[in-house]
C-alpha cells in the first residue's frame, strides 16, 4: 500500500521528458495514467527511483481527426476516447472498446498509450490496436519512429518500444468501405481485465463476401495477437454463420494459452473460439444492418 521512495519529475514537453529518460535510463519509469504502475509500486513489485510524469504534456492528449486518420495522443484517457465526439464520428469502435475497460474511475485516469506500452496480456486496447492496424508513434532523441501494430506486441509485457523511446500516440487509418466492427469481451470476474477480448473488423462486399478480416485477441496468450487462421479462412468467403463457425474454430491456434486459478488452458481456448464466433456474428449483424464504421 506504501510505495518506496522515488524522485518525481513533471516535464512540460516531450523533449524534456526524453532528456529525463536519457538521464535516468533504467532507473526511471514513465508515468501516464499510472493505473498499472501505481498498484505495482504500492505492492512494491516495482520500485523505480525516478518517475517521469507525462501528465503535464498537453500535446500528448486528445483525439484528433486528421484527414483520413484518427490520431489519439498516448496520454488520452480511456474516458477521453469513450466520450470523444471525434472518435465517435470517425471510428466508433474506439469508443465501444474504451467504455468496456475496467471501471469508470479507471477509465478517467488510465490512458490508451499507457495501456499499449505496458502490454498487459489481458488489457483491452491491444486487441483493437491489432484489429485496426494502428500505427504506434514513438519518439526518441533520434526522432520519430512508426511501428505497425503487427510488430508492436512481442511478448509478456514486452513491446517494440526501445530504450529511450516514448510512445507518443496512435494513428488509426481509414478503414475500407463497408467495414463493420465490434469488441466483445469476457470480463474477468475479479480483475475486470479481459479473460478473452475480441476486436473484429470485417470488410464485406455488397454480396456479403468477406474482403478483409482483422481479428485481434487479447487475454488468451502471453500477448495480444491476431487470429490469423480465422482471418484467412474468412477472406474470400461469404460472411455467414456457417463460415464464421468454421473460421472461429481455428481462432485459438497459435496462441500460447496458459492456466490460472480461474481458467484452465482448455477453458481459455474454448472461450476464445466462442467469443470470436460471437464477435463475428455481431459483426455480421451490424453489416446486415448497414452499421459500418464511417
Amino acid at each position: 500500500m506504501f510505495p518506496a521512495q522515488f524522485e518525481y519529475h513533471r516535464p512540460g514537453s516531450i523533449d524534456e521528458a526524453l532528456a529525463l529518460l536519457g538521464e535516468y535510463g533504467d532507473d526511471a519509469k514513465l508515468l501516464a495514467g499510472g493505473h498499472s504502475l501505481i498498484p505495482s509500486m504500492k505492492l512494491r513489485l516495482l520500485e523505480p527511483k525516478h518517475l517521469i510524469d507525462l501528465g503535464n504534456i498537453a500535446s500528448l492528449k486528445g483525439v484528433r481527426v486528421e484527414g483520413d486518420t484518427v490520431a489519439v495522443g498516448a496520454l488520452t484517457t480511456h474516458y477521453g476516447v469513450e466520450s470523444s465526439p471525434e472518435a465517435k464520428g470517425a471510428l466508433p469502435l474506439l469508443c465501444e472498446v474504451a467504455g468496456q475497460i475496467a471501471d469508470p474511475q479507471v477509465r478517467n485516469r488510465g490512458t490508451m498509450g499507457g495501456s499499449l506500452a505496458n502490454a498487459d496480456p489481458a488489457a483491452d486496447w491491444p486487441a483493437t490496436a491489432l484489429a485496426l492496424d494502428a500505427e504506434f508513434i514513438c519518439k526518441s532523441d533520434a526522432g520519430e519512429r512508426k511501428v505497425p501494430a503487427s510488430e508492436w506486441f512481442q511478448g509478456l509485457f514486452t513491446t517494440a518500444l526501445e530504450e529511450g523511446e516514448i510512445l507518443c500516440g496512435l494513428r488509426f487509418g481509414k478503414l475500407p468501405e463497408r467495414t463493420a466492427a465490434t469488441y466483445l469481451k469476457l470480463q474477468h470476474p475479479a480483475s475486470r481485465f479481459a479473460v478473452v477480448g475480441v476486436s473484429a473488423a470485417v470488410t464485406t462486399d455488397s454480396a456479403g463476401k468477406c474482403v478483409q478480416a482483422r481479428i485481434g485477441i487479447t487475454g488468451v496468450g502471453t500477448h495480444a495477437a491476431r487470429a490469423a487462421k480465422t482471418e484467412r479462412l474468412l477472406e474470400g468467403r461469404v460472411l455467414d454463420p456457417a463460415n464464421i463457425a468454421a473460421a472461429a474454430a481455428l481462432a485459438d491456434e497459435g496462441f500460447d494459452a496458459g492456466s490460472d486459478m480461474h481458467f484452465s488452458e482448455s477453458d481459455r481456448r474454448e472461450l476464445c473460439r466462442a467469443y470470436v464466433e460471437r464477435a463475428l456474428l455481431g459483426v455480421l449483424e451490424r453489416a446486415n444492418a448497414g452499421q459500418f464504421q464511417p
Partner: peptide
C-alpha cells in the same frame, strides 16, 4: 473514490503530486 477536476478517481491510485 473522490472527484478530481470533476472526474471520479480512485485516490489510492493517484499520487498527491499528480
Amino acid at each position: 473514490t473522490v472527484r478530481m477536476n470533476e472526474q471520479a478517481v480512485k485516490s489510492c491510485t493517484v499520487f498527491a503530486v499528480q
